[in-house]
Nucleic acid binder design. Structure first.
Lengths: 144, 144
DNA sequence: TTTATATATTTGTGTATACAATATTTGTAT
DNA sequence: ATACAAATATTGTATACACAAATATATAAA
């Protein structure tokens, strides 16, 4: 294997490892709150809509993990009373999902802790390196 | 949220997305061969040992995904006759795992396809950018 | 030698995930 | 209107996974 392919391989393996490490750390932070990273991200997506409803399709498109089963993930959040689901009156195929006050409060509690975890993950990098890394990664995930 | 924290957040989210994208692509390439990314990586680890045995502990440490259940993953590879397992004679607690010829042949078949997938994932980056990305990521995953 | 402790792997079990199949509603063409 | 296709979400099902508990072996201590 020549140099070019070797670099590509190492880069991709590194991406996998880095993503996995971030996931481990974040899940560790979330675990005491009995919530998974995917659930947390859905909550953040809903908070970002600032009261506006989101239908399942929209949520799915913005999710980090493109899992095929957002329905059941939402079910779990509903069980915990962190979100609510209604049938969209305009189009009864769709559903509308809202974050509850309880969900918002949970995110408030988590924000600091997640920030600390993010800082921990990126600790080996200077702020300038972080910017470079973010820009390179953004190029890769542009269409996702 | 101020700039610093925003950068960290975006960087971490980007890492998650990039890792996920890479995983999706690689799994897509592997799927026709009825093998998962984790199984593929174990096979590559074993090939890297060049005939030397690896015990389960060693494999687990080198795996990209630090799952707790390497036993059953090995079981799957044994079912497919891609690896073999023996009890270590020196220390009967340990097992020794080898890749079979069939496993090596499968890796041969896959090498080109995986390289093409890696190139596809990294297509948006120049080779210099790939090096920079790899170096930054390596700093993050140094202890993993 | 017996007991305790550490190491290495396997197994049990509940949950998560991927993928396909199935409703249900809407839009479109005949 | 009726039939057909598309969009949207849910459910079935097999597999994968995380985590803890159990098993088996080895090492150390009393």
């Amino acid at each position: 294997m020549d140099g070019y392919l070797e670099i590509a391989k190492n880069t991709v393996v590194g991406m996998l490892k880095a993503g996995n490490k971030a996931e481990q750390y974040l899940n560790g932070t979330l675990k005491p709150f009995d919530i998974s990273l995917q659930q947390f991200n859905v909550l953040r997506i809903l908070r970002g809509r600032k009261g506006k409803a989101a239908n399942l399709n929209t949520v799915q498109q913005r999710m980090i993990h493109k899992m095929s089963n957002t329905s059941r993930l939402i079910d779990k959040l509903i069980e915990k009373k962190l979100v609510e689901r209604e049938i969209c009156p305009d189009n009864r195929r769709k559903i509308e999902i809202f974050i509850t006050n309880r969900g918002l409060n949970l995110l408030d509690d988590l924000d600091n802790k997640i920030q600390m975890t993010e800082a921990e993950i990126l600790k080996p990098l200077s702020i300038d390196d972080q910017k470079i890394l973010r820009n390179l990664i953004n190029k890769i995930t542009l269409n996702n």
